[in-house]
Design a protein around this nucleic acid. Structure first.
Lengths: 253, 253
DNA sequence: AAGTGGTCTAGACCACTTT
DNA sequence: AAGTGGTCTAGACCACTTT
């Protein structure tokens, strides 16, 4: 019987969950193979079925394993690499890919938003926003042209930052104390016009990915509306999605 | 005591969960207000604590409510659209959007895969796959051109289906008993060449979205590799992402 | 027949919040 | 003190898969 602490502040199910997680992270249990069954956990640790289930359930919720009735629970493909899975800043994404992010500021000023961004930010076109236009680079190569709008009332005094080196998300989260929660992104295919071609240093007519995003704080307030244009040869967009039991979904109606 | 069916094929906890969901959707319980406590559910429906908990837990997982110890469970701010990312078939997606999905089969045969799809499916170019090419329509308008490859050994006898009306995912899940788990999709911008233009009935040079996906079973076996080309004016590609608390991740180590 | 996960019961003690 | 959710036990019957 493997040891767990019954007196720990850490619940038993979490201790077991973490133990299995370690085995997966270390490679002791590989992708696709079975983890302990609920019965095995009950015997190994002398715990009840509920506790055993809860340990596995936590791994399922975290996307680490999948349960299959009658068969067991199996280690899922690790979900690390994804570009759109988690709300990340450009700098964070480039750093994760092992490259060095830099920026060139084309334009940064306080102005009134157009209808599109005012609508995204749930403010009026008479309100004030900061508009920041940047070319983003990875290891010195231009790979994206970003335009972002932030409401002035949520980040007053934003003009003091130098976004050639400062991170916008760092400022929002650490300096203004906002809690970023989620983002909705729409992906649209475009071709480079003359302006974009010049900014990114590419020929016109090249197919590009344009994203339009709105980021929200935990309370639901829009904090940022942006339009980014990516050179897709240099920036891979990937999405990981999970299957939910479609029967459940249909019955809900 | 409100009525639930003890003999339904639908689990009790899901019946209760859906009942609460309806109250939230209809506005009877508004954002920020408390839903039934676990004790109340136990009394209202005469169920055990576990079943009551599981009903609330399902709502928490779906992002509908948040639990707060000592206080109760409260309705969350609705997340723009349908919450997270689900692996859906084309038909399922179109149905959700309130339109009628149809298909035109261009090509369906048993053949050897090229290197790209063989690699995606983790099989050899000497193995056999079914290749299915379809134009997918919503309310009669062509909006996507899909090419999908399925290993023959995982779905032997697939040729008996008529995929002008049958759903590939239905066949995979219900008839072959496979458990679809997750999918990885890469998004690429392209422009319509003559072949695509003809198939989709659009002018050449129009910007389009191409997706390359591989779907996996719960055990990690690739079940499907596909390339889809979408008319993006008719098909909005949106992604919702959540911000991770980087601090939490660090504590786990 | 034996093993797997899915659902459910009826209890218990605990930490936290409100009354 | 009473109510909330968090964790845990020890049992049960079920559907599904493998032996």
């Amino acid at each position: 019987m493997i040891q767990i602490s019954r007196s720990s502040y850490k619940p038993i199910y979490l201790q077991i969950c973490d133990l299995i997680r370690e085995k997966i992270d270390s490679g002791e249990i590989s992708v696709g193979s079975r983890v302990w069954s609920e019965n095995e956990i009950m015997e190994n640790f002398n715990v009840s079925r509920n506790t055993a289930r809860k340990a596995i359930e936590t791994l399922v919720i975290d996307g680490i394993v999948s349960r299959v009735q009658g068969k067991g629970s199996f280690v899922s493909q690790p979900k690390v690499e994804s570009g759109l899975q988690y709300l990340k800043s450009f700098s964070e994404e480039i750093l994760v890919k092992g490259m060095k992010p830099t920026s060139r500021v084309l334009n940064f000023k306080r102005e009134h938003p157009d209808f599109f961004h005012a609508n995204n930010l749930k403010i009026s076109v008479d309100d004030w926003v900061y508009k920041l236009e940047r070319v983003r680079m990875a290891d010195g190569d231009s790979i994206a042209y970003q335009t972002v709008f932030v409401p002035e009332n949520l980040c007053p005094g934003l003009e003091k930052y130098d976004f050639a080196k400062d991170s916008l998300y760092d400022a929002i989260e650490k300096d203004y104390g906002h809690v970023l929660s989620w983002q909705k992104t729409t992906v649209i295919p475009i071709v480079a016009d003359e302006k974009i071609a010049k900014v990114l240093g590419i020929p016109v007519e090249i197919p590009l990915l344009q994203t339009e995003s709105v980021s929200y704080l935990a309370g639901g307030t829009p904090i940022e509306s942006n339009v980014n244009i990516y050179l897709s040869e240099r920036y891979e967009f990937t999405v990981l999605s999970n299957r939910h039991n479609p029967a459940e979904r249909i019955e809900e109606e």
